[in-house]
Write a protein that binds this DNA or RNA. Structure first.
Lengths: 140, 140
DNA sequence: TCCTTATTGAAAATGATTTTCAATAAGGAA
DNA sequence: TTCCTTATTGAAAATCATTTTCAATAAGGA
C-alpha cells in the first residue's frame, strides 16, 4: 500500500489513528474539516484524539496523500488525493466533490499569463463549484 | 465613488474605519490579513479597532469590493477587487499579487469538465503561484 | 517476548474570530 | 449650522480552531 510504504521510508509507523483518518477520508463523499473527521471517528467508536487528526492531516499532506480543498468562505477541508495533480469540483448543494485532472488543458492558459505578467508560474490552485447531476434532478 | 454609492444604497455610512481599510488595501502590493491591516492602521496612526477591520472586510466582501485570496497553507488574505471576475497571481518570494482576468480563456476548459462530470459549473477559484519579475532578477 | 522510540491523548497555551454593549459620530432634517 | 436619530465603533469577554507540552502507550524490529 502507498501509505504503508511512504511511512516506512521515513521511519514512521502505521498507527491506529492514521489508519482511521485515511479510512474516514476514504469513505467521505466530500471534503472534511479536522473537526468533522474527529466527529466521525467518535461515531465509529474508534475515538481518536482531535489532536491526532490534526497531526495526521499534516503528515498526510506532506506525503501528498491528502489535499487541502478551499471553500470561498470557511476555508479548508481535506480530501484523499488521487496520484498526480488534480483539482476539485464541489457541489454547492450536497457538498459532494469529484476530482479531475486538468493540468494539460491549463498549461496553454498558464503560458499566456506568464508572458503577460512576466511571472514564472510554478503552481496553481483551481477549484470549481457547481451543482452535481443528482442535485440537478432533485431541483425539478 | 463606487464605495460611497453602494453604501448609500443600503442605508449604510461611509465612516473613518471603512475609508481607512480601503485606503490600506489600496496601498498594498499583496494580499493582507485582517491582522496586518490592523497593524498598518496603527502605524499610520489612524488606529481603528481590529474588530472594525473584520467587520469592514465582511461588508466589503458582500459588496464585492474586496476579494478573499487563498494561500495553500495559512489561508485568507484580502485584496481590493477590480471590477469583473478576476484571479490572482501571487509571488512566492515577496508576496506581491497581480490580478488577471482569464474567464474567457477558461470557459472552454470549464465546458469540457461540465460534459465529463455532468456537473453544472457556475463558479470557480483559480489562483496561480510563481516568482515575480523583480524576484527573478534578485536570484542571480 | 522484549525494548526502543515514534506516537498518542488530555490539558494547557495560543491565536483568530465573533459577540456584547455602552459610547460615539455620520449625515439627513430643521 | 445645529440637532437628532441610529448605524457604527472599540474594548472586553466569549467562542472556536489550532498548536504545544509532556507523561503514558503501543508499533514493530531484534
Amino acid at each position: 500500500m502507498e501509505l504503508q510504504e511512504k511511512l516506512h521510508n521515513k521511519g514512521l509507523r502505521l498507527t491506529q489513528p492514521r489508519r482511521e483518518v485515511v479510512a474516514i477520508l476514504n469513505a467521505a463523499a466530500s471534503p472534511l474539516t479536522p473537526q468533522s473527521i474527529y466527529q466521525r471517528s467518535v461515531e465509529r467508536k474508534s475515538d481518536i484524539g482531535l489532536v491526532s487528526v490534526y497531526r495526521t492531516l499534516e503528515l498526510l499532506s506532506e506525503l501528498n496523500l491528502v489535499r487541502r480543498v478551499h471553500g470561498r468562505d470557511g476555508c479548508h477541508g481535506y480530501v484523499l488525493a488521487s496520484p498526480g495533480h488534480h483539482h476539485h469540483l464541489v457541489c454547492r448543494k450536497c457538498g459532494k466533490a469529484v476530482e479531475f485532472s486538468g493540468s494539460a488543458d491549463l498549461s496553454e492558459f498558464i503560458t499566456k499569463i506568464q508572458k503577460e505578467t512576466g511571472y514564472k508560474i510554478n503552481e496553481h490552485i483551481l477549484q470549481l463549484y457547481g451543482i452535481c447531476p443528482k442535485c440537478q434532478e432533485e431541483r425539478q
